[in-house]
Amino acid sequence: MKYLLLKHYRGAPAPVNDVPMDKWTPEEVDAHMQYMRDFAARLEETGEFVDGQALAPEGAFVRYDGEGHPPVTDGPFAETKDLIAGWMVIDVESWDRAVELAGELSAAPGAGGEPIHEWLEVRPFLSEQTTVTE
């Protein structure tokens, strides 16, 4: 079963250890990066890693504006908008395993070397295959 782990720039409840990264020490930044890399590497090892990408905070909303008109854009994003920072797709045995992994990812060290306790969103993929029921 595939799950999406979503990390937010903003819009998620505030983490416990809520200090912006540029206010950490360089060593704390390094430790955090290392933790994230090790986490992904471990999931590759267990055969549970599918994909991971980071997103820039810039962007815009776009919508169709009718025949003959260019699309309408609305951006940059308002300060109040929920903003996704990146994702990881994992392929695991169960919901419980997905939650366990999200918990580990959320324990990444932050300021003072303490876990950030960041809130991550976990979302199951809708499968492409239908289960045969007859």
């Binding site: 990264m21 540029d22 020490t25 360089p26 930044v29 390094d30």
Partner: peptide, 9 residues
């Protein structure tokens, strides 16, 4: 990010 952290330190 690390550079920002370094200068703040």
């Amino acid at each position: 990010t690390r550079e920002a952290a370094r200068v703040r330190q």
